[in-house]
Design a protein around this nucleic acid. Sequence first.
DNA 1: TTTTTTACCGACCACTTGGTCGGAAAAAAA
DNA 2: TTTTTTTCCGACCAAGTGGTCGGTAAAAAA
Lengths: 204, 204
Amino acid sequence: MDKNLKRMATMHRMQVTGLELFYKNGYYNTSIDDILKSLSLSKGAFYYHFQSKEDFFVSIVQNLIVRKVYSMLIEPIEGKENPFRVIEKCFEDALETAEHNEMDYGFILSNFISEFNRRNTVISNYLMDIYKVWEVNLVSILQKGKSDGYVDRHVDSEGVATYLISSYMGVRTLMVQGNCRNLRYKYMQQLRHYFSSLATKEIA
Amino acid sequence: MDKNLKRMATMHRMQVTGLELFYKNGYYNTSIDDILKSLSLSKGAFYYHFQSKEDFFVSIVQNLIVRKVYSMLIEPIEGKENPFRVIEKCFEDALETAEHNEMDYGFILSNFISEFNRRNTVISNYLMDIYKVWEVNLVSILQKGKSDGYVDRHVDSEGVATYLISSYMGVRTLMVQGNCRNLRYKYMQQLRHYFSSLATKEIA
DNA sequence: TTTTTTACCGACCACTTGGTCGGAAAAAAA
DNA sequence: TTTTTTTCCGACCAAGTGGTCGGTAAAAAA
């Protein structure tokens, strides 16, 4: 069941290069030939492993994109500390990584959600699944933050999660055009401001 | 200089239909033939009026997209009232329009910025020009809000503008996937929350 | 060793892409 | 009316597009 190593290896190579180009040029602006050329592989190899361009992309979403988002935005948000500080740190790190990445083309998830919105519901659904996990994760950490006394009890966790995701997706889109450092700084500052309005009002 | 009415009319028809399809399917996923077919016009007509697909799109940006963004997000933000209320109203209206639009494919400006990010700098620049006007407009109304006593003097207007634009672009992207009503509600609620943390701390 | 399966090649297919061009209606100018 | 200019037609082009398919090395099984 795992003896098909060659198979897995080739598929993985294709997926990695595929994602690279799809992310860089967009799905519709990247041909299978482009990917094959940069891998020195042939059409036959591609259609031996994947049924179609769409099938190929779905496999990329489920294998690579999912992991990227998890490791960058979902897994770092855990622990019993102050959720505001945790999210802050997570976003700051993510933005900093993007800022220092010479090859940044925006937030991968948001880019593809935007590109496939209403144009390919199959792919859209897979992408939205990742989004939902992220959202649920944010909500749960905020809820825990309430019982831990960090988050004001009147706060609407789902609303906050939506707002956080929205704003993050937005800055990431803007950051591609340059001026990242400034954008990140301004964004983080306002994020902290926003958070401060959600924290428990201490009388200390 | 304005006697070329026929010319202007045909060009306008092409631009309107072009924008429709570009917005719906994306630039790279829409061919000139698609547009021509839905207009019952020929290639000759197209290349008589426009030099290339790119030139065509630029003209759409400068003639149609600019106006859409202005009328929806820039012009409504004027007046000497409380900037928070004005922006709130403007965003609420914009989101409501989107929500009730059966043919909504997201925020037009953000969609194209995302699609052309780093892939076509010429078009990107024209799009970013619109973004900048929007930003400047938000900043100036916030600054005025300070002297009018609505906005706390310590607030970083540019930071707020960035945060506002980011979050707006983000929700609009999310709204395409449905659940718009809920998203809009949650977003607006958090926006108000955020604003409340920026308002002058009255002791009344 | 022989046989079978896996993995890959690359010519080929029908179709679409952005773009060109000679010409012809239609409209305006003479 | 004739001439000129404007507007548009549609056949055509080279270069792709996603996808198929008969074939073939290499690896695994017999």
